[in-house]
Design a protein around this nucleic acid. Structure first.
Lengths: 327, 327
DNA sequence: TTCTAGCACTACTATTTCTCAAGTGCTAAT
DNA sequence: ATTAGCACTTGAGAAATAGTAGTGCTAGAA
């Protein structure tokens, strides 16, 4: 159990380190506290023994450890007031459009990325959680048509396909068969259902079934397994912890890896903080995430930044966005 | 006019520099040529006076100047044979799908980016070149619907919109008005045509016209002005010329800037090479680009790499992709 | 007890100095 | 016209140096 003074010191160190990005000295702290630097140093030793602080070398100031950040987030942090400018800019986005939730989300996260210099991620539900709700076909000309796939979680995708020497009627028959028979199937499993339930039927009723079947099979095969949007990738490069080339490569590569990002998905309704090793993306980053639910759509939003990220501010921003999205 | 030997030397220097990424010495060259390093050095002085070569400092080897690359590309380069592996992998992509041209394009450029460590760009026609061909609406439930916009150049976009307290009939009336009256308009101008030609009419015939009009107005406002796909951004970070943090930031920021990328668009049917200052993106890169035309779609594809990029190989690859796409 | 002033000590950072190797330009001989 | 030879330049890296920020510890004060 930490004493009040230890908590104060830890809190100050975390806050100062977040602000200045370099090890915090006893001197800096003692100015804010009514005691001498020597006293602060003694407490620092204690906090270091408890695993909450670290040194970069023997005679350096202190830096919070992961456990230190964790303690801060769990016990010391107090959600920051959002500043007026941030709020105003976000309001403009939310007010402006009565339409297009997903654009709205993306724009607001873009704004947050630009303001904070962190990276944002918008994550739809994974394909195994999306069920096929409806498919639709729009003919373009003799050979080309657009196939539109709609899921129950509000995810929509379209593909332009070419089907030669097949009449539109036949395609439409197939579409209505699919809409009658396999709606409600998780997107992941549609391809196989197509094979075992639809293929035999269209084999009998539909001319040119081979080519039509193949096309739809492909469409569902190609349906994105994960629906990810990464916003403000480059902003994070401004953070001093990412100012060496190898680290940049590593982070950017991970941010482009859909499989890794899929891990970010969460079911938890709260705002959750995953510091360093607590997340699966990278030991040097913190991910703060939450989910949103609207009648027509649901998904996850996350902010990725260095462990030294401004927890108070990001939590406040996410809370604000979440509540605005949901109404 | 260059002598044969000068051309040989220039060619060797360009090729060696592309391969090794460091200034080329007279020694290296004279091994490949039947003459001494001193002779090569004399010729180098000559080539430098002509502006085809440069030095990084007084006693360094030579590096091609932009004019040097230009000369190489115009007169010395001979399209490289594509190696079997490259060809095979690309063939798999092209053969595999009779469907979805744009996916096919994207996949093949992803592959090229990975093989070459350059970045690829797929660029649809700008919105002022796309004419509205058709719009479509798919109702989802009482309040939500998907609006699909199709252009003559094969670009398709969808938006999910929420329209409260309006009957589907009224929306459909508006859709067919739009389809009757302003098809053929450049996408850029649709919003304003909507205002001056559609708004007055639906004002009379359609109930709740205000809300419907606003929605469509928004949809066209938000329609992407440029339809860009950047593939393999991070591969380019492996190039030695981009191994300092500031340069990386600069390049990545430019690659994310749609306005800048829009400049890349070209009408030229050939494969064109833009070295350094010749392009509008960045003085340190070369862009090699061409256009593709299919009955249903057209656009530009481009490869971005350092000036020291493997011209022969990239030209061959682009040629191959272009010809495969077009059939 | 608890706190703090004071001081010796450590490790990083920046700057300078030194050395080495790579490669050139020029000259004189072939 | 070509080439061997040599003096010269420069950058890159290692080693030496000085300066500084910050610690840990001790002993005395509160």
């Amino acid at each position: 159990m930490l004493t009040k003074r230890q908590e104060d010191i830890l809190k100050l160190i975390v806050m100062k380190y977040i602000e200045l990005a370099k090890p915090v000295s006893s001197n800096l702290i003692c100015k804010k506290l009514k005691c001498s630097s020597a006293t602060v140093r003694n407490e620092m030793v204690e906090l270091e023994n408890l695993g909450l602080l670290e040194k970069t070398h023997t005679s350096s100031g202190r830096v919070p450890s992961e456990a230190g950040y964790r303690y801060y987030v769990d016990h010391l942090m107090q959600p920051k007031e959002m500043n007026g400018e941030e709020m105003l800019k976000l309001q403009i986005i939310f007010k402006n459009q009565n339409l297009m939730l997903s654009d709205c989300l993306k724009k607001s996260l873009q704004l947050i990325s630009d303001m904070t210099n962190y990276t944002s991620i918008v994550l739809g539900k994974a394909s195994h959680e999306n069920q096929l709700k409806e498919i639709n076909v729009i003919p373009l000309d003799r050979e080309n048509m657009i196939i539109i796939v709609i899921t129950d979680k509000g995810h929509v995708e379209h593909k332009t396909v070419t089907i030669k020497d097949v009449s539109l009627e036949e395609v439409k028959k197939t579409v209505s068969l699919i809409n009658d028979l396999i709606v409600g199937t998780p997107i992941d499993e549609v391809s196989s259902k197509l094979e075992f339930e639809i293929k035999p039927i269209i084999g009998r009723y539909v001319k040119e079934h081979e080519i039509i079947y193949n096309t739809f099979y492909q469409v569902f095969q190609e349906f994105s397994h994960q629906n990810v949007d990464v916003v403000g990738r480059n902003n994070m490069l401004k953070q001093p912890e990412f100012n060496n080339v190898d680290k940049i490569k590593e982070i950017l590569t991970k941010l482009d890896d859909e499989n890794l990002l899929a891990n970010i998905e969460t079911d938890n309704n709260d705002i959750k903080v995953y510091i360093g090793k607590e997340n699966n993306l990278d030991d040097d980053v913190t991910i703060i995430k939450t989910t949103y639910h609207t009648p027509s759509e649901e998904g996850t939003i996350a902010i990725v930044g260095p462990k030294r990220m401004d927890y108070d501010r990001v939590v406040a921003l996410l809370e604000y966005i979440k509540s605005n999205i949901e109404k």
